[in-house]
């Protein structure tokens, strides 16, 4: 089955050795200021000229900084995501448990309002929610990229029965109905580690989510890498290296990997938002993060229960996620254009 990956990686980079010394084509007209530029520098120059890319990059960076600095910001703001302000302080919530002030109780004290019934602060929940989302999705992306590249490259380079076997395993993994498997397996895997009568600690929940997402996620990248390696290994420079006596380890490390960085980076920038939303979807379905861990998906889950009385509680995490995903997708497009200008449409 020939699945379009949407990555448009038709790249044939031969910039392994030597090309860093040769001047880029658009510079040859003005030899006076020629200074050797590495492909990385060129890509960076292209990226900086792309206004959409820079702005979306800044937005993404802002989210990362907010996640990293969450304790500092929360300390300056003077609240935390766990205290039930609305219950401790009379007058904040009305008799039905909804924020007394309009728009979900937004005011100078509670910047994004209060959570219905429990009366926790929305802004700090959102802030700490970034940490949960990014921690889980980055861990998953790191694991699946490492695994996927390793498996894909080895299968593509070795060929023969290894490639055949890996190809069939990838086929099977990709035909698993993944969302259903995530929600079905996460509780099962958790019960492996924790006896049924005990509370599952938060770190273990996160680990389980990461493990299960990774167990299915590597196949996509492995397939992509395998395809790349299949076309790369027939190139002259690989043949030259082989004739010069390089072993498979060296060829993969020194000849193949440098040419795979572009598809790897592009794939990373495309998968991070996917896993941010997948993690949120799992919490929305009730198998990811649970009370009281601050998490966007869990907030939307709660928000969906009370949406008709207080829509604002779900607007905050929903919009934050929308902005983050849009910015990250735009950033991904710009990264691809910068690394691989020929794939530009």
């Amino acid at each position: 089955m020939n699945e379009p990956t949407g990555l448009a990686v038709t790249s044939d980079h031969r910039d392994t050795a030597g090309s860093s010394e040769e001047p880029p084509p658009d510079q040859t007209l003005a030899p006076a200021e020629v200074a050797g530029r590495s492909p990385t520098q060129l890509a960076w120059r292209r990226f900086r000229r792309d206004r959409t890319g820079v702005i979306s990059g800044a937005v993404v960076l802002l989210f990362f900084l907010a996640g990293l600095g969450a304790p500092v910001i929360a300390a300056l703001y003077g609240k935390d995501p766990y205290t039930t302000y609305g219950q401790n302080q009379p007058g904040l919530l009305n008799e039905f448990g909804y924020p007394a002030k309009p728009n979900g109780g937004i005011d100078g004290q509670f910047w994004l309002g209060l959570e219905p019934s429990l009366g926790r602060d929305v802004f700090t929940q959102l802030l700490y929610g970034i940490r949960t989302s990014l921690l889980i999705s980055l861990a998953v992306v790191l694991i699946i990229t490492t695994l996927g590249v390793l498996i894909g490259v080895v299968a593509g380079y070795t060929g023969r029965w290894v490639d055949f076997g890996v190809g069939r395993v990838i086929d099977v993994v990709l035909s698993f109905p993944s969302t259903l498997f995530f929600i079905a397996f996460i509780p099962v895997i958790q019960s492996l580690f924790v006896p049924p009568d005990q509370e599952t600690p938060t770190w273990l929940r996160a680990t389980t989510v990461i493990l299960v997402l990774s167990a299915f996620g590597w196949a996509q990248i492995a397939r992509l890498m395998r395809g790349q390696v299949l076309s790369l290994r027939e190139r002259e420079y690989i043949e030259a290296a082989r004739i010069a006596g390089a072993g498979p380890g060296r060829i993969i490390r020194a000849e193949l990997l440098p040419n795979l960085w572009t598809p790897i980076l592009v794939s990373v920038s495309m998968t991070v938002p996917t896993y941010v939303t997948t993690e949120a979807a799992l919490s929305f379905l009730g198998v990811g993060m649970v009370e009281p861990t601050p998490d966007w998906g869990r907030m939307i889950h709660r928000g969906a229960e009370v949406y008709s009385a207080d829509l604002s509680y779900m607007l905050a995490p929903g919009l934050a996620m929308l902005v983050f995903v849009i910015a990250f997708n735009l950033l991904g497009d710009s990264v691809r254009d910068a690394l691989d200008p020929r794939a530009h449409r």
Binding site: P273, T277, A280, A281, F284, I300, H301, G303, A304, Y307, S308, L311, M314, L315, G318, M321, L322, V325, I326, N329, L330
Partner: peptide, 18 residues
């Protein structure tokens, strides 16, 4: 299309329902 592809079912669906 960019916005559509970035929005989540459980978010858009509930806003639309509201």
């Amino acid at each position: 299309c960019l916005v559509g592809a970035s929005v989540q079912i459980y978010f858009f669906g509930i806003i639309a329902r509201y």
